[in-house]
Design a protein around this nucleic acid. Sequence first.
RNA 1: GGCGCCAUGGCCAAGUGGUAAGGCAGAGCUCUGCAAAAGCUCCACCGCCGGUUCGAAUCCGACUGGCGCCUCCA
Length: 458
Amino acid sequence: MSIRILDTLSNEPISLPEPPYEVKLYVCGITPYAGSHIGHAVPAVVFDVLRRYLEFRGYTVRHVTNFTDIDDKLIDRAQALGTTVKALADQFSDQYLASLARLNILPATYYPRATEEIPAIIRICEGLIAGGHAYASGGDVYYRVRSKPDYGKLSGRNIDDLLSGARIDPTELKDDPLDFALWKGTKPGEPAWESPWGPGRPGWHIECSAMALEHLGEQIDIHGGGADLIFPHHENEIAQSEAFTGKPPFARIWMHNALLRLGAEKMSKSLGNIVGLDEVLDTAGPDAIRLFILGSQYRSPVTYTEEALSAAKAGAERLRDAAFVAAKPGATGTVPTETIAAFYERFEEAMDDDLNTSRALAVLFDLSREVNRARDAGLEVAAPQVALRHLGGVLGLTFALSEDGSKEAAPFIDLLIELRTELRAAKQWALADRVRDGLAALGVEIKDGKEGTIWSFS
RNA sequence: GGCGCCAUGGCCAAGUGGUAAGGCAGAGCUCUGCAAAAGCUCCACCGCCGGUUCGAAUCCGACUGGCGCCUCCA
């Protein structure tokens, strides 16, 4: 079977060409004007899993994710903080990438920045003007929404409905209130670049078209992002890209993840209901976050709650224990190859079906049970464990013990556990339990096994 | 107002025509100095009403409740 992804535009499952094939993947990135919240982890994890699964299935992936490092919010924020747009953007871009690394996200092949694509942006504006799809007005350049009849095809709207929406701010510089800015003439104090229309800066949507065109070509395979980008961002991207190249489709597949909610509402900076990504990373670790996100299919909205996260944390621990538990001493016999193969089949079947990570996760939990059963039955556990770690790796799970920076504590904890083991051997239960309870109070969990005692940070 | 989505056990979440995956929590048993972990067993008829069908959580219609986009947002 082949991988099928539901395309937002056609609402049909679309397959990619069979491998070997290089998948051209463009995922809309962030505007780095503030710290990241867990909502940002959703597309990062979803598209990371897409990438890992494609590679698992034999594809190579050219993955480009942009930083929109020039825009109104950045300008306002920089002025408020008395810093430069560039310094601000660099700070939050770096911070974002550091958080992604902690989440075990594979780095994109390339991370272009809007401010480094100005020549391409200008070239596209000129091309659109030449083709009659855009016009200069004042120091601005606007895309003419009515220049092609299919505007609105991605988000399922038509221009006249949009007009009746009445939240549009008509500007005298625009021929039509729905036309959007490709290039904005500069205002005093703003960063600006030279252009045929005078000094200015890119509008919001054009940078993505430019970067996709520059780094992936005129037609890409998968264009992804959060569902909130469907309109107007991706709608406008399609319009200007296809108008510019004259080669539809701009993207073979449009793939959008549902937004994370906090309580009943979506999490967003404007609502002020944000939970920082790094804080969650600190308390729950990367695997729990991934389990939490991948527990539902990417097009279903997930709701962030403490309970859901701690449930995911418990699940991550279960997987990790199974992935590394030791076989009984003197274990003989192994789990049949066919049994292992069946898990792979189920996993692939789930993932092929529009990245059904929820089902794929169920396979991993079943595989964990297989490991534990094999161990209890006195079998070798290496084979199912290798499979578990392999397939878990496709979902980007690290199986790492807690990533607490408490490594310095490890030797001391080991020493205490050694002492406790001796106390237990001497049947000094009260003292042994004091050690265990004391460690527990400090956040160190102990598990006694046949092969000795293991511990972890809870 | 326009476009669209969702409603499954205590919580989360798969499942789109044939009698409900998985996780968390809970109960019992086994194992164990105790505890934890692990294994086994148990725990739902799928928002409401009507319809189609031999048969529906799954299709159609109405209703109720919730959410998203239409404005910066991943």
